[in-house]
Amino acid sequence: MSGQVWVYSESEPVANEVATAAAAVAQGASAEVRMVDIGSVRPATRGSGGRLLLKGPAGHEVSPAVAAEALARAAKDLAPLAVLLGATRDGREVASRLAAKLGIGCMAEVAGLASDGQGMTGERNVFAGKVVAKVRCQFPAVATVKVGAYPKAAAQPGESQEKDVGPVSDQTKTVGREKKPAGAVDLRSAKVIVSAGRGVKKKEDLAILAELATAMRGALGCSRPLSADLGWLPEEHHIGLTGVTVKPDLYLAVGISGQLQHVAGMKDSKVVASINTDKDAPIFQASDYGIVGDLYQVIPALERALAARR
């Protein structure tokens, strides 16, 4: 039997990460990978194996609803063993709707994917990252793959396939799209991260943390409330369960309480140091070095000390 493992993501870079996960599943299941495009071919999705173009949905605006319906129609006919998507916000919606349409299981935000031939297994964070669960789902199955957990697949030649799924209509209408402010740095590749939490009293005060980050040749990150709720920093700068997962050599947590959801995104850092006024703050449990103190005194002191050494 030569089944197929499909890869789809609305984001081309994420699709190439998912392709790497799909290759692991395909290997265990003696299956082939198919990079799926909907509506039109996207040359930047490279993947490993072949391509599958789903024709029918009009235009280039493929909403989660349209993607899920197109994938479901094609899957009913072509019966792939598995459909893997990226665990982006849109990707979660496509995967969930697809699984509901097909009545099959959907693994959420997994890494470490493998297949025993009959189904697939993966690992995911539960209870805010305190626990890792190993999950399994019988084929046919859907899964979303954790963003950033896999390297991007290299381009590989393979067969190209087309499938006409007919026109797909959307019950909703996207009438506007505005870019969120983008960050200038990629925290995933930063060696040093100075990370700001709610201990910072106002937006302007972030400047002293940014200065320290620059002096340490690092980048500025933050906890979720600073980006999502207060909008002080771009959203891709927030670290944790719902943000990015980082592994710098040094993670300096400043005015961050250290809730599990935040720690989930930085616990693999090589060295963690933290500054907090509360000696009982949970961040100290997740740190190698801790200073109980006011960031408004300790940060300037760190800058002075750094300057004196250079």
Partner: peptide
């Protein structure tokens, strides 16, 4: 935190 229940 699966985010799956609502779309389903």
């Amino acid at each position: 935190y699966t985010g799956q229940v609502p779309p389903m």
